[in-house]
Amino acid sequence: MTTATSSRVWWPICVLSAAFLLWRAAVPGGPGMARVYVKPAPAEADASSAGWLAARPDESGAVVSPARTAGVWVAALLTLAIFSFLYKDNPAYRFAEAVMVGVSAAYFMVAGFWDGLVPKLFIPLSQMEWGTVGEVGRSLLTLTPLVLGMMLLWRLLPRGGWIARWPLAFIVGTYAGIRLLSFLEADFVSQIRNTIVPLVVRDTDGLGFDLWASVRNGLMLGGVLSCLAYFFFSMDHRGWYGRVARVGVWYLMITFGASFAFTVMGRIALLASRLEFLFDDWLWLIDPLGKRPPPGL
């Protein structure tokens, strides 16, 4: 599509969309859209100001929240800006992406500060005592992560970045320690144990023979062994061994096919969720959760 054709198509769409939004949002007595209502939160005994909580429009004391209403508009426009990438890369998408990167990096930093550094470092530091030998020992243990943390931040300085290797080594060593045993226990030994299943399964009454369960167990055991055969490269995949490994490949292909289908399912659920936000919270075209009184009431 040429730029001129593209403009001819997009201008009418943009004008019609703007007119539609204006009608829904601004016409008195119109259907309305994007308004968020709040009510005062019940004051707790130990709080001097309780803030505001989301409310239904028909609840007593409910008022429109300008900040949250503006928020819904911002969220909707950012959503549309990101969806616009599907047509082609454009400044609106780039802007929304830049906002996301900045906000998310700061979000993680703030969460790390209030939920990590404050309870795990600053509060223990404020409680340090140096009176007895035991207290000195405990205080030194409290100071250690601070020192390691400062060494980690040394990476940001132009010289002496190698100092960050010490805390990095601590992180890698800790991971190595906890993963060595947990993977062996849960993902190796337990998986072998889970695979040891009876190939002849008795009925629940113990007298008959459950053919279907036996076939399932056999298929599962054969599948694990053939896939492992495929992963074992110390033997040439030739002759009978090659044929077993090939069966393993078939199992893996079915596994990947199932994973693909599941992945499709997951992505669609995420899209449905975003569209529901646009149709429900922003445009008020649907109200699946009954958040608003029916139109005309």
Partner: peptide
């Protein structure tokens, strides 16, 4: 579990996991 993660959880059943709610379904 999300749909992406759910297939990887099946080997844990039944000894290590008693059940899975796989994705939106």
């Amino acid at each position: 579990a999300t749909a992406v993660q759910a297939p990887q959880a099946y080997p844990y059943i039944p000894r290590q996991l008693l059940g899975i709610l796989a994705a939106v379904k």
